[in-house]
């Protein structure tokens, strides 16, 4: 990997872009070679920074048996900036709002450039096992979860069956 010193700037920029992409590709390769149980992530053919993700609802949670679709996008500044992740499947969860946005610290202020796609997806899976109504993104759901957890679980299960069944 080297370019002649006097290469034109647009080539140079392409070179840098390619280098950044190799980080993305090597991470993608790892995800494919050593998949995380219950999680799949496949990059789009035409945009390697854009991933189709599925996460299986963890056993023992109200999301059990559900398969949730998400989209994950790696911004140009990745890994300096966190990936952008969103649920595409509707889900009744105190930390996930109507638009599928996720309230998870490592996707915001607790992001570290040493974290990887794998870590992020594992954390989201963990969030399904352990909702945190004290740090809500969907206030009405959080309220429901706090006041009558059993009933909130019932709704979560219903939604899972309605929107996330295989």
């Amino acid at each position: 990997m080297s370019l002649p010193k006097a290469s034109p700037p647009h080539l140079r920029r392409a070179f840098v872009a390619v280098h950044r992409l190799t980080i993305v590709i090597s991470e993608t390769e790892r995800l494919v070679a050593d998949p995380v149980p219950g999680i799949t992530a496949a990059p789009h053919d035409d945009n390697l920074r854009y991933f189709d993700v599925t996460i299986q609802g963890p056993d023992g949670s109200p999301f059990q048996q559900g398969v949730f679709k998400l989209e994950l996008f790696l911004p140009e500044e990745y890994p300096m900036a966190p990936p952008k992740v969103r649920f595409l499947t509707k889900i009744y969860h105190p930390n996930i709002d109507k638009l599928g946005r996720i309230c998870l610290d490592i996707l915001k202020d607790k992001w570290s450039p040493a974290l990887q796609i794998r870590t992020v997806l594992l954390s989201i899976q963990a969030l399904l096992s352990a909702p945190n109504p004290d740090d809500p993104l969907a206030p009405d759901v959080a309220k429901h979860y706090k006041e009558n957890e059993a009933d909130a679980h019932r709704v979560s299960r219903e939604w899972t069956q309605l929107y996330a069944s295989k």
Binding site: M1, L3, R12, R13, V16, H19
Partner: peptide, 8 residues
């Protein structure tokens, strides 16, 4: 690579 990125 570092030099190139810095220049850009």
């Amino acid at each position: 690579q570092n030099e190139r990125e810095a220049a850009q």
